[in-house]
């Protein structure tokens, strides 16, 4: 009777092969461990940004629409006893901005978007790193908890009370800065990496989805962050999509917004690729 047509290799490998395979496996295992190590260390730095994913918290402060939806939050006393505030940038869920949600909250409170805002408590997820914070509002309904009276320590703070009022500042200085346009939600915590080439298309998605564009200007020791905004309260997001996550030079007039800067630009002429 004819043997079965032999399939594949022998059921039992010849002794010489077995020996060789054992040696090969030994080398392979060492190589696997070595490469796992090298590829881990080769990653360089991973951003320390934190996104409290799945953990919501409550945050109260002055809710304002311009230049970007944000909550101005009391942080600490300064050296002259003045109040120090943080501007916490608000974002929507995933790759969306908070504009729609904040608009709804304004409507609910019968406030005009151009108003200086009002004091309220919001619910969301904190994102923070490098001294800056963002707050992801999960959903229109859940995000808004209640409107509050302005606390006394803020109301009575004569030194920095003025900062609560969004007055037009005629003294904005013109400046030219070199840096990279990032989307702050990913950069400060939601994603690793949250900037650079790898993250470029995500940043384009986020910024076109309404997350405010921020110019990161790095010096040797620190980074400074400039929220990009148009003159006349106009967003520049759709005009700058081509320049994201690349070295660029931007000219505009800047002013401080608590711990951030705002750079007011004319997107037609302000940006140049380096």
């Amino acid at each position: 009777m004819e043997k079965e047509f032999y399939i594949g290799y022998l059921p039992e490998a010849p002794a010489a092969h077995k020996k060789w395979v054992k040696k090969f496996l030994g080398i392979l295992i060492i190589a696997i461990l070595l490469l796992a190590g090298l590829l881990t260390f080769g990653q360089g730095m991973i951003s320390k940004g934190i996104f409290n994913f799945g953990k919501t918290s409550e945050l109260e402060g002055y809710l304002r629409m311009y230049p970007v939806p944000h909550l101005k939050v009391y942080n600490d006393k300064g050296i002259y006893g003045e109040n120090l505030y943080k501007t916490v940038i608000l974002t929507g869920a995933f790759k969306f901005g908070a504009e729609e949600i904040v608009k709804e909250i304004f409507e609910k409170n019968n406030k005009d978007l151009n108003d200086t805002g009002f004091y309220c408590q919001l619910n969301g997820t904190l994102i923070y790193n490098d001294g800056k914070a963002l707050f992801e509002l999960t959903d229109g309904a859940d995000a808004y908890l209640k409107t509050l009276d302005i606390p006394d320590n803020i109301l009575n703070d004569t030194l920095s009370n003025q900062a609560m009022i969004d007055g037009f500042n005629p003294y904005r200085l013109e400046t030219t800065l070199k840096g990279e346009i990032i989307d702050p939600k990913c950069y400060f915590g939601a994603m690793k990496p949250g900037s650079g080439k790898v993250h470029k298309s995500c940043a384009i998605r986020c910024i076109s989805g309404g997350i405010p564009p921020v110019l990161k200007v790095s010096s040797e020791s620190t980074n400074q962050y400039y929220i990009l905004f148009g003159e006349d309260k106009k967003s520049v997001s759709s005009d700058i999509l081509d320049y994201i996550a690349e070295p660029v030079e931007i000219t505009g007039r800047f002013e401080a917004l608590d711990d951030w800067f705002v750079l007011y630009i004319d997107p037609e002429k302000a940006i140049r690729k380096l």
Binding site: A93, F94, K95, F96, M191, H199, S201, C202, R205, C206, S208, G209, G210
Partner: peptide
């Protein structure tokens, strides 16, 4: 991660 959850279909966004 990089294309989902945005204002465009992830494959189109790719």
């Amino acid at each position: 991660q990089y294309h989902g959850g945005g204002n465009e279909n992830p494959i189109v966004s790719l």
